[in-house]
Design a protein around this nucleic acid. Structure first.
Lengths: 355, 355
DNA sequence: GTGAAAGCGCTAACAC
DNA sequence: GTGTTAGCGCTTTCAC
């Protein structure tokens, strides 16, 4: 390839290509989009001209005309978590396969961001949106008059939009039951908040599952062992356990609501001389890559992140094609992944007993 | 807010707003963009009309007119790593502060992706690009005739584009020297590859620093302890250490080239009964949140990810304003962050001695 | 299979 | 301060 060739000043347009190929702009358009049959010799001439002029179609113009940008938005509360990274990876990969670009947005930092995205999608140059809402109560979708194509991620209980979800209540029940079966009797739920600003639908459902498992075992969970965590990050998890310990709460297992929270909890436990799983059992949620490689490996609730992305993109594509179709909620299978952090059968955790 | 109001069918345009407010479209435009003075009463009328019609400006049209989308691309090799997540978080936050949206791209999965992004930026509806190139040798920028506004992340040795970088050679030298001072004598470099497909500029510089530190201490590094890793992920790090052990190489410290690699290494070491830092010292690169919370906390090279994002966006903005300005390379300060994974002064690691 | 004309919604350049 | 004109580059009719 030649170096230092001067850039062909003003970018070539379809008109230029058409002139060089001695056809009309429409024919060039047909060649580019493949939207109509073009005879082989004509196509050749056009393609040669495009190459010669280094033609790059102007997406803005196309978009203005046909109303689609080919860009979808992906809006997550916190982009720095391991789960966000995994999901972004999967969505970008799958979207690219479909010829779509992904614009990424972070919603937790700014309360109005969700609302702005949902109400003014077009202003952001996106065709539609995959949204993991921070909170149900003032989730933008509940308050919008007319919605752009949106696929919700998570268990938000509404039927105004398409959504993908895992059965969080059930999953939490399973992992909690597993830990009870391993001998834990004073389990802590880490991440749940039933009321207030941070009560996400996901948190509430996982807390519900946590309680259901206790009830099914003829036990009951204690309010002082149901802790909210904010943010749902490593730091948030560590801080919550610090508070738990300094509050003098007795416990022998922790059901963390994300793997990141679990990682933070693990660190704080260690700081206080508590071993996982000998003293305290520990589990997470999401099965990020990290979970399998922590020490001990983390018991968690896994689901296929790629399937999740595919389902979301499928729903979004269908919605873009037909805005009036009935909304759907697509469940994604989850499974309990038992690893070393919840110990061995028959070896109950010693527990943490404050002085 | 009223629910179930039917969407006002065809979206309102500036023309509609202008008609309702009894002004010209240009005045509406002025109100929206703030690009000219508008008298208070007029502005009021226009704003009322916009509200009444639920007007959302059409970005495609604006873009077609003024040539800027307000979207910048962020292209990283692998979006699922902790460092990618951190950097994405910082870039999105800072870009949003500047009124820019971020389109995210992943380049490692597909060899042509980098090239496509650089050569056809406009086709992706982005004004410019922040790019962390996978490889120097066939880094797209080296082969492009005319480049869109691009800021390179990392130590790619070229002057055709702006770039931000940390002094990787120096940083690697510092962390290696630190580990030698802690008594390690058979250090492994994990992530370097000098030749071939995976020899990134970053990897080569860190390897150089690793060797320089040895030379400065009157020691020399051994080829069998300089390992390439691919991908630069937790799994990649674990696998590399597995190979190291099964190859029967003797070692007492690991200088991993990212924190993720270090996490994987830590896991593999543990699998083989090797303790950090008693048997083997361990260090990483990047100081992701995780590093401080691992057990033991990870010694690493830290730099401010937010500063990194700011510098990149500043350079990109300046380039967008003046395409002919001289390119700049902006260094970002780094610092050695010593934590438990490299042990204590005077306590040399026992080392791994194959049977 | 190809072309001509019109226009998507906005803003630069200029008037007034 | 505000209006008029023109046109960004493409694609959608609708001819031929």
């Amino acid at each position: 390839m030649l170096a230092n060739m001067p850039p062909r000043s003003p970018r070539a347009t379809m008109k230029d290509v058409a002139a060089l190929a001695r056809v009309s702009p429409k024919t060039v358009s047909n060649v580019v989009t493949g939207s109509a049959q073009v005879s082989e010799p004509t196509r050749q001439r056009v393609e040669d001209a495009m190459r010669q002029l280094d033609f790059v179609p102007n997406l803005s113009a196309r978009t203005l005309r046909n109303g689609r940008t080919g860009i979808i938005g992906l809006a997550l509360p916190d982009l720095s978590t391991a789960f966000s990274a995994d999901l972004t990876h999967a969505v970008v990969q799958e979207a690219h396969r479909r010829g779509q670009a992904v614009q990424i947005e972070e919603t937790a930092a700014e309360p109005d961001r969700e609302h702005d995205l949902v109400s003014r999608a077009r202003a952001h140059l996106i065709d539609g949106l995959i949204l993991n809402p921070v909170r149900l109560e003032d989730s933008a979708v509940e308050h919008e008059e007319s919605l752009p194509p949106v696929v919700l991620i998570g268990e938000v209980e509404q039927t105004r939009t398409d959504r993908v979800f895992i059965d969080s209540r059930r999953a939490a029940e399973e992992v909690t039951a597993h830990m009870l079966s391993r001998g834990a009797r004073r389990l802590v739920a880490l991440g749940g908040a039933e009321h207030g600003e941070r009560a996400t639908a996901t948190a509430r459902l996982r807390l519900q599952g946590f309680r259901d498992a206790h009830a099914a075992a003829g036990l009951s969970s204690a309010p002082e062992r149901e802790l909210g965590v904010w943010p749902w990050s490593i730091g948030g998890g560590a801080e919550a356990v610090e508070q738990l310990v300094s509050a003098g709460v007795e416990f022998d297992g922790i059901v963390a609501f994300t793997d990141s929270i679990a990682m933070g909890a693990r660190h704080a436990l260690h700081r206080h001389g508590l071993s996982v799983p000998d003293d305290v059992l520990l589990s997470g949620f999401d099965d990020v890559e990290h979970a399998a490689y922590s020490i001990p490996p983390l018991t968690t609730v896994g689901f296929d992140h790629h399937d999740y992305a595919v389902a979301a993109l499928d729903l979004l594509a269908a919605r873009l094609d037909d805005r009036s179709r009935a909304t759907r909620a697509e469940p994604i299978a989850h499974r309990l992944i038992v690893r070393g952090s919840t110990g061995d059968p028959g070896a109950a955790p010693r527990g943490h007993r404050p002085a």
